[in-house]
Structure formats: C-alpha cells, structure tokens
Nucleic acid binder design. Structure first.
Lengths: 141, 141
DNA sequence: AGGAGATTGTTGGTGCGCACATGAATTTAT
DNA sequence: ATAAATTCATGTGCGCACCAACAATCTCCT
C-alpha cells in the first residue's frame, strides 16, 4: 500500500501549511482573548476605526461573506457590542454601529491582539517576520 | 468616531493576512478540485501514502481534531472513498482504509492539487515561494 | 490481579465560511 | 418612465474546527 517516496508530499503543500498556521494562530488568540473570536474582533476594529457602516460593507472590509457577516453581527449584538439600525436613505441597508461597551472592549483588546501576533511569530526573527508579512500581503493584495 | 491614524492596523496583523490567504487558497482549490474539500483530499493523501490507520491517528497526521475527523471520514465513506473497519486487537479503534475508488481519485488529483498551489503562489517569484514555505514550516513546526 | 490513568471514539454545542436561492429596494440604461 | 441589472439582507444547507463531557477499552504500575 505504501510508497517508498511519494512524489506528492502534504508537508510541502502551501495549503496544508497555511491551514496549520491558522490553526495555531487561532489557538493563541483564543487563549489570550477568550471573550472574542478573531472575526468578532476584526469586525469591532473596523467599526471602531471607521465608524458605523452597512452590514454588507462591514463584510467586505473585514473579508467576510454576506452570510457569514450576518452571524457575526448577530452574535455581537447579542453580546451588546454592536447595534443594528435601519438606514433612512436606503431601505435595504442595515447600519451596524459599535456600542460604547463594544468600543471599550475592543480598545482593551488591541494590546492583547498584538501580543497574540508576537507569540505566533515568536519562532521567527524580526526580519523574517517582516518578510513573511510582506509575502502574505502580496498574496492577498 | 474615526481616528486619523489608528495605531492598530488590521492589515498589519498576521492573523488577518493569514485568514485572507487561506480564503483565497480554498477558493482556488475548490475551483480546480470541485469533488473534494481540502481536508478530504489531505485525508485521502495520508491513507494512500501511509496505508490504513486508526481514525484518531489519521486526525493527527492530517491536523484534524478528533471531532472533525469523524465528520470528514463519514463523508468520505458516504462517497465510497474510504471504509471503516473494526480493529481486532483493540476494540476502541476504528481502522480507516482507502478504497480502490478513493485511491484512483486521489491519484488523479495530485496534479491539480499542485496546480492549485502554483496558482495561489503565482504572485510570488520562485525564490519568494521557497522563502514563504520555509517560514510557514518554521511556524508550524 | 487490580486499580489509576491514558487513549479512542462519540455526541452536543457554538462559530465561521461559502454556495445557492429569494425578495425587496435601488440604480442604470433604454 | 419603464424594464433590466445590480445591490442588500436573509435563509438554507453543507462542511470544517474546536471545546467539553462521556463511555468503552486498554496500559501500566504497584
């Protein structure tokens, strides 16, 4: 059944290594910031820094599908961290706004979030980290 | 509400870029290999190259949680690509074995899987790709 | 031998993530 | 101004991902 040296090696696959890196990062983030998921945090960051916006736009700026963003926003609303308001100028739109509680929470979490990144990137030297981030940015351009 | 230049930039965050890279890769993979998910493919690769193994071990070598691997294996079984057999020496264990059909399918998909990686890494030069893979490997140890 | 502790697999619950379909509202193009 | 195309939000269905709890089984240690 086995092959002596398979020409296709899972370990050499970009997708496989990417997935493992994400798993590791998410674990670190969850340990440092148990109250929010990475997506909830990213959404709050956008709403804190760019102000209220439509649910759809929030999805785009936080890299979430329209169906996904709905779930994230609903859970954030249940936590009292965002509000959902009707848009008077466009009846299709649903404006999402961060609450004071949400703003206070996300701002307390900026430092831990940076720390999560540092822990995740700890195996790399500073210059390697810069290289990695630059390469990833090129890929997600 | 807005800040002129927030000190915390989502785009500079490792986790955010990683997630975007995974999203992009999964999309490319799904387009090139519509019949299998990345996890189903990874599981079949392991079973093809290392032979039958317990469900639990399969999860470990393919980087899946025990609860996750069950779902993946059940769906592969429903597709007729793997079999689940009782282990005579250990009544807890459930041996997972690839079927002939599964083997034939995964071997047809090695090339498309390599192509998915190449498409995903197309924005980088060959040496940059090597660098990225080396850095990711260091992170996932 | 026998009991503590570990391993294997399962279940239930929560949270992304995407494809597809739908309906309402808005924009555009004729 | 009306029809066509687009946008926004929602719903459903499927698939991963992880946690916590659990029962059955196995190992190891005294």
């Amino acid at each position: 059944m086995d092959q002596d040296s398979p020409s296709y090696l899972l370990e050499d696959q970009y997708g496989y290594q990417l997935r493992r890196a994400v798993q590791r990062y998410q674990g670190i983030f969850a340990r440092l910031i148990p109250d929010l998921t990475t997506m909830q945090f990213a959404s709050l960051v956008r709403l804190d820094q760019s102000g209220a916006m439509s649910q759809n736009l929030l999805g785009r700026v936080a890299s979430m599908d329209a169906a996904t963003v709905k779930g994230v926003v609903m859970r954030l609303q249940a936590l009292g961290l965002v509000r959902r308001l009707a848009d008077p100028t466009d009846k299709r739109r649903l404006t999402v706004e961060i609450t004071d509680e949400g703003r206070a929470l996300v701002r307390r979490m900026y430092d831990p979030a940076v720390q999560a990144m540092e822990v995740a990137l700890a195996p790399l030297s500073p210059s390697e980290r810069v290289t990695l981030m630059a390469l990833l940015s090129r890929l997600t351009g």
